[in-house]
Design a protein around this nucleic acid. Structure first.
Lengths: 361, 361
DNA sequence: CTGAAAGCGCTTACAG
DNA sequence: CTGAAAGCGCTTACAG
C-alpha cells in the first residue's frame, strides 16, 4: 500500500533505510538513535556509522510509530462539562487552562481537548461521549456539574483521571481549592474590622464549590459570634433586600462568586442604584476573584476584598497528580485542597455608624 | 510487555478482545466498527454481535494505532508558535480558540493541543517538535512568527495544515484577516472627518500582520492625499514625539495593535501625561481591537475607533478549510482573507483647530 | 556487542 | 460474507 499520508511525495527515510545504508539491523538503528537501555553498550564504530547515515538521509523519527511502540501516547485528556472556552462567563476558568497547559508542556505531554460537551449538555452525560477520553493516557475533568454514571465506569475500568475541583465521591482523585477555610477567613476579617451583622448572598446553584463557601461562611460566623444569614438570589431585584438589610443594621455583605456572577452583578447594581459607597456605607467581600479582568467594586471602584482561587496552581497540580496516577503510583495522596490567597482589596472597612444617613439617594 | 499505559489497571480493550468476545476475527471487528468499504457488506447478525461486544467492553479505538495504519482519527491539531494560552498578553487570541473549538465540536472533531512551543522558542523550531502534529489528521498553525523549515517539511510530506493568519509562502493554506483594506478604511474615515495630517505609530516587530496594516495605512493615505508618516516605537518615552506632532499640526494618530500592545500603551501614557483629551485634542484610531476586555481610550475613556479582527470567524473558517484539505479536496480556494468589521468607537472626531491651546498640561 | 523476532493496535487488500 | 496475512514504523526483550 502506498503511504496515504504523502501522495506523490518521496517517502521519508525510516530506520530500515538507515540500517541498510549503515550495514546494521533496523533494531540496532533504534538502539543507537534512541539511546541504548541501561547496561547495554554499542560499538563506537557502529554508532558512528548509524549516526552518519541518519544524518545523511535526514532521518526524523515518526512520532506516531514511536508512540504506538512505546505504548504511551503522551497525551492527556481534558474533558469539560461545559464549554472548554466559555464565551459568556468572562473567561472565568482561563487560568486553569493556563496551568494545565504549562505543566503539560513542562512534562512533555500534549493535550486532547474533548469537544462537544459545550454544545449539548445532553451529550456530556452520554457515557459514550465520556468514554472517548480513554484515547488519552489519562484525563482531567472539570466543570461545576458532573454526571456521575459515566465517571463511575471509568473508575471501574481503572482509567486514570483527576478532577479539577473537589469531589464528594469516595476514591475520586482531585485537586481543588480550600473554599471552606478561605471563606471562614473572609468572615473573620470582617469580624476583625468590627462588623457584627453580616449577610451572605449566594445563588441557587448547588455545586460543591458553593456548598463549601457557605460552610466556610457559617463556620467563620460561628467562630466569631456574628449575626449571619444566608440569602439566595438569582441576582434580580435586590433593591428592597438591600434596603431591608441596611435598616436592620447590616454593615457587611459577603457574596458568592460563580460562573455567571449573577449574585454579584445584581448586588452591585442595587448598590449603585441606592447611591451607596463601598466600604463607606457598606463593606463588601467576594468569595473568589471577580470574573472580569478588572473587577472594580460598585460605589467606589476599589478592588474587591476576598480571596484568590488558585486556578493556575490547580491546573498544574492536577496534571502532576494525573501523571503520577498514570505512572501507577497509587500510594501518595490523591486528593489535594490548595489554599486560597487572601486578597486585601479595598471594600472592607469599619462598619458604618448606625445613625449616619444612608447614601446620597 | 505489560501495558505501560495503565500498570495495575485493567487493560484497555482492543479489537482482538471484541473479536474473541463476539466470536469473529479481529479484521471483521475493524470492518464493522469503522464501516466496511464501499461494496462490501457484513452479515447483520455479525454486526450486531460486534457492536454489542464493543459497547459492553467500552471499546475506544486507539488514535495512535489508527493513524499509523494510515487512517484518520477525527482529531485536529493546534500548534501555536507561542503559548496557546498566553498569560501576559491579556488573552488576546482567546477568541480564535473559541472559534476553533466551536467549529471542531460542530464537526465532531476533537482537538489536540501541542504544547511546549510556549516554553522554549528553540523547541518550536525543532522539526521533530513540529512533526509530532502528525498524530492528528491535520493541523492548525498559529503565531506571529513561524519557523519556515519544519513547516516546509510538512508541505513536502503532503500533511494537511492551515495557518490562522495570512502567510507569504507560496501554496500555504491560510485563513487570515484583510488588514490592508481595514487599515486603509480607517485612514479614509479620518480623512472624511477632516484630518489632513496623521501619523502612524507601529512597533518594530516585522510580522506579516504588521506589514499588512502599514500597507493599508499607506494606501489609505495615498488615496485620500493625506500627509502621513510611519513611526516605529517600542512604546517608551513618547512624550517628546507627541509634542512634536502636535506642534507640527498633526491632528490624528493611528496605532498598530499587537500582542504586547506596547505602542498603544506608550502612546496612551503620553497622552495622559500631556493632559490631552480624545478626540477633542487628538483623534485616535486603533488597527484592531484592544487587547484588554474593555479598551477605553486615554483622555476620555471612550471606546477606540478602528476595526474588529474577526478572530472567532478565523478560527471557525480555519477548521472548515482544514477539514476540506483532509478530505482531499485540493480544488477549492485554500487562502481566505476575512473582512474586519469597522468599529465606530468614540475616538475619531473633527480635527482640533490649529490655534487652540493644547491640553491643560 | 548486534541480529532476528515479536509486538504496539489498527487498516486494507486478498483469498476463500 | 469473513478470515488470514501483511503492513504502518517503531521499541524491547531475547538469543547469540
Amino acid at each position: 500500500m502506498a503511504d496515504a499520508r504523502a501522495p506523490g511525495n518521496r517517502r521519508r527515510p525510516r530506520q530500515s533505510d538507515i540500517a541498510r545504508s549503515a550495514g546494521v539491523s533496523q533494531a540496532t538503528v533504534s538502539l543507537v538513535l534512541r539511546g541504548a537501555p541501561t547496561g547495554m553498550s554499542l560499538a563506537p564504530a557502529t554508532r558512528q556509522r548509524v549516526i552518519a547515515a541518519a544524518e545523511e538521509l535526514g532521518y526524523v523519527p515518526d512520532p506516531v510509530a514511536t508512540r504506538l511502540a512505546a505504548a504511551t501516547n503522551a497525551m492527556l485528556g481534558l474533558y469539560t462539562f461545559s464549554a472548554t472556552f466559555p464565551t459568556d462567563v468572562a473567561h472565568s476558568y482561563y487560568p486553569i487552562l493556563v496551568g494545565v497547559e504549562e505543566e503539560a508542556a513542562a512534562q512533555g505531554q500534549d493535550l486532547i481537548l474533548f469537544t462537544g460537551s459545550a454544545r449539548a449538555a445532553a451529550r456530556a452525560d452520554d457515557p459514550a461521549a465520556v468514554r472517548r477520553v480513554r484515547v488519552a493516557d489519562g484525563c482531567l475533568f472539570f466543570g461545576r456539574h458532573v454526571p456521575a454514571e459515566p465517571v463511575r465506569r471509568l473508575v471501574e475500568d481503572g482509567f486514570p483521571f483527576v478532577y479539577i475541583g473537589r469531589r464528594d465521591e469516595a476514591g475520586v482523585p482531585y485537586v481543588g481549592a480550600d473554599y471552606v477555610s478561605a471563606s471562614a477567613d473572609v468572615v473573620a476579617r470582617l469580624a476583625a474590622a468590627g462588623h457584627r451583622k453580616v449577610r451572605y448572598l449566594r445563588e441557587h446553584d448547588q455545586a460543591l464549590a458553593s456548598v463549601d463557601r457557605e460552610d466556610g461562611v457559617l463556620r467563620g460566623a460561628r467562630d466569631a459570634g456574628l449575626d449571619t444569614l444566608v440569602v439566595r438570589t438569582d441576582g434580580s431585584d435586590l433593591d428592597a433586600l438591600l434596603r431591608e438589610w441596611l435598616d436592620a443594621g447590616v454593615t457587611a455583605v459577603v457574596v458568592e462568586q460563580t460562573d455567571t456572577g449573577a449574585a454579584l452583578a445584581g448586588l452591585g447594581a442595587a448598590i449603585d442604584r441606592a447611591g451607596l459607597r463601598c466600604p463607606g456605607d457598606l463593606s463588601l467581600a467576594l468569595l473568589g476573584a471577580p470574573t472580569g479582568t478588572r473587577g472594580s467594586a460598585p460605589g467606589g471602584g476599589a478592588a474587591f476584598s476576598g480571596f484568590d482561587v488558585p486556578m493556575r496552581a490547580m491546573g498544574r497540580g492536577a496534571v502532576r497528580l494525573l501523571l503520577r496516577l498514570i505512572a501507577g503510583d497509587l500510594e501518595g495522596p490523591s486528593r489535594r485542597l490548595l489554599p486560597c490567597e487572601p486578597v486585601e482589596g479595598g471594600t472592607i472597612g469599619p462598619p458604618r455608624p448606625p445613625n449616619r444617613t444612608t447614601g446620597r439617594a
